[in-house]
Design a protein around this nucleic acid. Sequence first.
DNA 1: ACCGGTGCTCTCTAT
DNA 2: GAGCACCGGT
Length: 831
Amino acid sequence: MADGSAVENSGRMTADDFNPFPDSLEELGIEPESQPAPQGEDPLLADLTPPQREAVVFGDGALLVLAGPGSGKTRVITRRIAHLVNRGVPPWQICAVTFTNKAAGEMRARVGQLLGTAGPDAVAPEPPRGLIVSTFHSLCARLLRRHVDLLEIPGLTPTYAIYDMTDQRSLMKRIIKNAGLETGTWSPRNVLGAISTAKNELMDAKQYAQNAGDFYTRTIAKLYENYERDIRRANAVDFDDLLMLTVRVLATSEEARLSVSGRFKHLLIDEYQDTNRAQFVIASLIAQREDGSRPNICVVGDPDQSIYGWRGADISNILEFEKHYPGASVVKLGQSFRSTQKIIQTADELIRHNTQRKHKDLYTERPEGDAINVTHCIDERHEAQIVGAWLREKRDKHDLAWGEMAIFYRTNALSRTLEDEMRVTGMPYVIARGTAFYERGEVKDVLAYLRVVANPSDDVSLRRIVNKPTRGVGATTLTRIDMLATQRGMTLMEGLVEAAQGKVEGVSPRAVKALDRFLTIMGNWTGEGSFMGADISSSLSELVDRVITESGLETHYQKLADKHAEAVDEDKVENLYEVVAGAKQFEREYDASADMTMDPSLGNDEIEATIDEAPAPPLLAMLRAYLESVSLVADADAVDPTQGAVTLMTLHAAKGLEFPAVAIVGMEEGLLPHSRSRDSSSELEEERRLLFVGVTRAEDHLLLTNARTRTHHGMSERTIKSQFFDELPPAHVEINDLAGGWGGGTSQSGWDTGKAIDDGEQRFVPDPEFASPGDLDADGLPAIGTRVRHPQFGDGVVVAVVRGMDAKAKIDFGRVGVKTLILRYARLEFL
DNA sequence: ACCGGTGCTCTCTAT
DNA sequence: GAGCACCGGT
């Protein structure tokens, strides 16, 4: 990768965790682990510390590994898997669960390497066939696909779609409106949040309704019921359903549970501190032994790195593991092989400020290392420049590659300024946002077509494409059909079929014709539903290719590009073909056996046979598997240190990774800790753990920055530096104040600038360096803190500025309050 | 039915 | 600063 080019890392998911093995492990950025072992000693154990070794060789039963950051937990899991296989456990009886597809892929590659007897010029050894290394959601999607019929939920079949947040919102929005409620007071986001929490605690709509007392929860209960009704009618499940319905399958069907628990004799779970109630139950049900013997369950995690409480993660799963599994053994790994002493001690000092925690000693034998660099910056652009300069210095002076550095932030919105800076200065960068590619409109269009092909009931996808490209089926037509369909309890697709036959009143002849054409195209792809028609594509990528051309999407986007002649529109056409390419790659890498062996009717011999030679899957099965893998792509899957670029990502996505140099930006009250955690000490502690995770990703160099003013809501606002700065050990920190001092303490909560100004705190006294009278910037806008006089409101202070055509300033006029004025019109006098 | 413009709202993390 | 609902012109 040449300097100056930004890498667009789509993180396009291929055959998810099937077998995308690279030619060499170095390509994946994985260091070969095996080292020459002393004669006679097991090479799997040779370079391990005593506690690591204990965890690897631990026999049957329950094992909890409490692993501090950088203590080699991935190493322990992979060695343990390899050790089990060497001990004679058939690989297909082992199931390991990780947090991301990426982590699963790497773990599988490492196990393959450990077990391979490859000589110097042999190709990279493959992991043992049949070994399952997967994420909870992938595993559940696959299990559910095989067993869903056992649930006997009307409308839910193995071709179900997986609805992401956008799909859910669009569905919920319609439900709220249909219920006669305002989407303002009842925001889809909040309603779905409540439903998600309920599902994570395994509470279905009925149970939720039974517990609903007040008006608010009763309304949510009603919406929950309607949501369930509609998502089932669409033959779809959401992310939480994948877990909840898997629990239901395993809990209600003896056959399903026995087929899973009978197969997986060893269960290993990574990042156990982030499991929720549903995941805990799934693990218990899989691990449960029929003969009453002790479950072979090995969980690895670190309570101090629990950062998904907001998503239902229940830290007591790991804290009370010994209670759940009496007689469980515990191994503690406290020694870090990753970070320098200063970084470890800084992280340790920080996390000690959490009161709700069991202390764990962290230590390292690595060198003392550099001091942690804390730099206070003027604004976010300055901050981006500082980070850029710091990274460049790391490359020049410490000989680091771009791929060995990363920038973390609390919210995705912060990436923009950093991107701009890196583009301008020609520093190669990658944003770890695996879902980004699939969030593009044109890509969603193609996928929506494919989803409807696989599952005609998929209401949300059908609405998206029925008139895209425009074919004369407008809002009026659709409303008519929708009303009829709802009345008769049909799916929207069934309504369209009626309408195309001219059976729906109020649908114009023109629209009837358009619908007929639309349905004919769809029918051609699916072989009229049989998926085996004469005119049907034989391969997945061929189908995708046909969908793009025959739907009219290609022409539509090509016309757009011709009309505007802009790169953005050209990209859209390119992206359509990228989907075809992705499908082709999926085809090549898809291992059907992983799906086939989930069949509960298979005996051990049959599983072995299927693993050895899985039959080619029919097109529909292939399409399902492809859509499923696409739905389950995670942002962190896009992390690839071999791309020769600096990686930008959220602190959440950084979990489990490590880099020689790490910069964490936006260390401000309201951002880190986030404003939403202000009123809750447990949430504040989670914010602290989030920073702890970020800090402990660093091997050698760490930079922490904040900006004195930051653009927020399109407004430039004054900030307060993060209270976490005060929790770092001064001896290890080197402070670099480039923002000209910070008036006032950090203990005040005052993220809202307007409110804070009203309390007259000293910190808002304009800094002379920035608020010198009449001080205007390059855009002719007053700096924050500038004193102004208004003929009507009197004297005031600029507290925020909005750039753009109609530049506005938020001005605090004391008694009169804070006003937002359009600078062009405001009769302002600068003092 | 479609398209472009304007004005409004809400703004975290993510499988 | 983006996504959206709404409105008026074609």
